[in-house]
Computed example of a mutant assay.
Amino acid sequence: MGCGSVSYSNLKNGIIAFLVPLPSILFYLSFKLAYLQSPSSRSTLWTWCYHHPLLLANVLFFFNVNFLFWFIGLIQSSHWMIDPYWTVIPVMLAHYYSSHPLGEYNWLRSRIVMLLTWVWSIRLIHNYFRREKWQWGAREDWRFTDLSQQYGRHWWWASFLAIYVPHQVFLIGLSLPLYVIHSVNEPLSMWDLVATVVCISGVVIAYIADTQLYNFVSGNKEEGVAILEKGLWYYSRHPNYFGEQVWWWGLVVFAWNLGHGWAFVGALANTMCLAYVTQLVEQRMLKQDSRAEAFRLYQKTTSVWLPWFKSSPLGLKSKDA
């Protein structure tokens, strides 16, 4: 593929990515305009949108993300768009919940969480485009490609259930603390500080881990090292995953402090899913002949997620004796 076609594809996908959320944005702005400016002529639809902000978020997600993203993915034969939007949707939901007419919240807590969510998003967006060599939609997630091969000719409809429906569960679920934060008006407390520190720690850990991984992958062609085992990766096999989990559980602390501990369900579901993804990643590493032996030793000596000190692999001492 020539440079011209790559540039055209990059521009086309970039335009699509910027235009695709417009249906939800325009619908929501229409609702706010109609509801706030004409109280006497509120339709049943606008009244429902007012009283059910969480359900409205799910409806918009279903039609604008699940259906529209899926349809575009079928046309392009690549479901790439959900990856960059994983980093954007929580920010959009945070602004949606804070601007909804039914919202009632502590202004300072809201601004703190908004800022934290933007920092998390920018960090993840930067990592995505750095990894993809600053291109829009150059490739889809390798897990989607593997699934498409497994489902074969049924993938066109199975992709809707395998990719988009789970993303609605996870993204809406993970963002439940953002809904709680903008539904309860309580003064700040020490727990807000704790939650802020936890969130920042998660973002910093994930950034450092992803940067170390990017530098390793970029320079590995010359060095020829089988696996990354330096920096945070010396203490954990997946420190980037660990940092990401710390971020989401930090948001849960905000919701728990406001008396809505049930908002942990999204973070719990995501943690369980990430445990499965971790297995997939490690199985993929073990299928690579050049890395399999080194990675098996890495598994025996290094913690999966939680950064911890190295342990001695079984049998190593007896072999060295």
Rank of each mutant, 00 (worst) to 15 (best):
T87R: 05
F61R: 05
L22K: 01
S77L: 09
L286G: 04
S183P: 05
K221E: 13
I208P: 07
F129M: 06
L11G: 05
L232E: 07
V252W: 11
R296F: 10
P90V: 02
L124F: 07
F160K: 00
Y207C: 05
R237I: 01
V65T: 08
M81L: 13
H100V: 12
S236C: 01
V184Q: 04
W86S: 11
G266C: 03
V253W: 00
E222D: 14
W107K: 15
S77H: 12
L297I: 06
F69D: 01
R296N: 15
L19W: 00
A195L: 04
W118R: 03
I208M: 10
A34T: 14
Y50H: 13
A34Y: 05
L268H: 13
W80E: 03
L188E: 09
W157F: 13
S110Q: 14
S41M: 08
K300A: 12
Y298V: 06
T301H: 07
L22D: 11
D83T: 11
R139T: 13
A294D: 10
A138N: 12
I72P: 01
L68W: 03
S9P: 06
W136M: 08
F63C: 11
T44W: 05
Y105G: 06
P84S: 11
E222R: 09
L124P: 02
Y50V: 09
F254N: 03
V217A: 10
R296Y: 13
H52N: 14
N10G: 07
Y97T: 12
S318Q: 15
A206L: 06
V91K: 03
H79T: 02
P39W: 05
F216P: 03
L274E: 12
I15V: 15
K287Y: 07
Q245L: 11
F63P: 06
N270G: 12
H260K: 06
T278L: 10
L22E: 09
F61Y: 12
A195V: 05
R284P: 02
S24C: 04
G243Y: 00
S121C: 09
P39T: 07
F242C: 02
I72A: 02
S318V: 14
A267P: 03
E186D: 14
G4V: 13
F18N: 01
S175D: 10
F129S: 06
P53R: 03
E222A: 11
S201P: 01
F264N: 00
P307I: 02
S311H: 10
I163G: 00
G224A: 03
V6H: 10
Y207P: 08
T278W: 07
P39F: 04
L213A: 14
